[in-house]
Simulated assay, not measured.
Amino acid sequence: MEVNGNTFLITGAASGLGAATAERLVSAGGKVVLCDLSDAVRSHAEALGDSAVACSGDITSQEDMQAAVEAAVELSEGRGLAGVVHCAGVVSVAKLVNRDGTPADLDAYAKTIQINLVGTFNVMRLAAAAMAKNPPSDEGERGVIVNTASVAAFDGQVGQCAYSASKAGVAGMSLPAARELSRHGVRVMAIAPGVFETPMMAEIPDEAAAALAAAVPFPKRLGKPDEFARLAEQIITNTMLNGEVIRLDGGIRMQ
Rank of each mutant, 00 (worst) to 15 (best):
V84L: 14
V85H: 11
V85I: 14
V85Y: 09
H86W: 05
G89S: 07
V90S: 08
V91T: 13
V91Y: 14
S92H: 13
A94K: 10
V97A: 06
N98G: 15
D100S: 11
D100A: 07
G101D: 07
T102W: 02
P103E: 07
A104S: 13
A104L: 12
D105M: 03
D107S: 14
Y109T: 01
A110M: 14
I115P: 04
I115A: 07
N116K: 12
L117G: 08
V118H: 13
G119F: 09
T120W: 10
F121G: 08
F121T: 06
N122W: 06
L126Q: 15
L126P: 09
A128L: 04
A129D: 12
A129W: 00
A130V: 02
M131Y: 09
K133Y: 00
K133V: 01
N134E: 04
P136S: 06
P136F: 05
S137K: 00
D138H: 14
R142M: 08
V144D: 04
V151Q: 02
A152D: 13
F154Y: 15
D155C: 11
G156T: 05
G156C: 06
G159Y: 07
Q160M: 13
A162G: 06
A162I: 01
A162W: 05
A165L: 07
V170Y: 09
G172M: 10
G172N: 10
M173R: 04
M173Q: 11
M173H: 03
S174I: 14
P176I: 06
A178G: 02
R179A: 12
R179K: 15
L181D: 03
S182C: 10
R183Q: 12
R183Y: 00
H184V: 01
R187T: 01
A190I: 00
